[in-house]
Design a protein around this nucleic acid. Sequence first.
DNA 1: AAATGGTCATTCGTATCCGAACGATTGAAC
DNA 2: GTTCAATCGTTCGGATACGAATGACCATTT
Lengths: 163, 163
Amino acid sequence: MTGPHTVAETERAVESRLGALKIDFESMQAVSNIFRAANAVRNHFERTALAPQNLTWTAFVVLWVAWIWEPLETRELALEAGISKATLTGVLNTLEGRGWVQRERADQDRRLMNVTMTTSGRRLMRQLFPALNKQERVVASKLTTAEKKNLAAMLKTVMASIP
Amino acid sequence: MTGPHTVAETERAVESRLGALKIDFESMQAVSNIFRAANAVRNHFERTALAPQNLTWTAFVVLWVAWIWEPLETRELALEAGISKATLTGVLNTLEGRGWVQRERADQDRRLMNVTMTTSGRRLMRQLFPALNKQERVVASKLTTAEKKNLAAMLKTVMASIP
DNA sequence: AAATGGTCATTCGTATCCGAACGATTGAAC
DNA sequence: GTTCAATCGTTCGGATACGAATGACCATTT
């Protein structure tokens, strides 16, 4: 995941292309490492805990949100999972096709769609979530408890800075 | 991006489904906030600095790596950008179609493909990179310089923990 | 020089991913 | 009771995203 070039090499290369233009390298490094870490961790999860069920990270997140908060409406599920409604439609097709969730049109408001887990889906998550948490422990194993909390807090600060 | 439920509510809901099973919530929060932050920042960039050119974050990263290190081979570009060779082929088709990069088969080794920027691509990046760095500054604006470095370091620690 | 094992970018198949447009439905105004 | 703006999930179009298979090419061995 990490490229072969060092930070210093990159800064020199940027300066040679922009001259005197001021670039905030601390912000750049902080942000780019968020993306690198997210990709690396995501790939690790898909290769380990999620591989036996051939699940993508997104599909797992949707399944997890549905497991925790069911029954819930599609728009809530998309918001909580952090994906668009359009994406959720496709993911739900996948998950429903494998028999892990169910869609039902709401009685009161016929526009809404209620999502619930199936028995098979609940059984899967009871086994899968601890397995995934074990991998979360692995990727965070070199951080102290205080550092994990600090990391989460700083990332929340970043999100709170987005207009 | 952030869901409507609090951390405490989530932990209660997990415990009600797993009973006595031990879950490492600190690791879980640290990891899940990496994903949330990455998605939020990515969406912000695509809505602001990248919107005028209708560029995705991935396409920008590929363009950036090519700009800094050109000429370079496809496999190096994929490694440095953090995507697979298969994905890169599609992204390069997009970027080459818009006239920002060029592909040329290497003379010595006919298997290799060298990627270079076009004049139009270099002009774009000279304008686009400072605009993006401005947005990086925005999302990191509530962190001190020391915190930015600390954040980057902890994320590198996470990546180094992946087997 | 023919065979072989390795490496390269691409193609294929499948699954996300999103914005915009769409049809169905709702609730309120008149 | 009928317009009408708002909201729901889905569809559509285009762009990622990856593993596996593929065809081209290279270097080494026979």
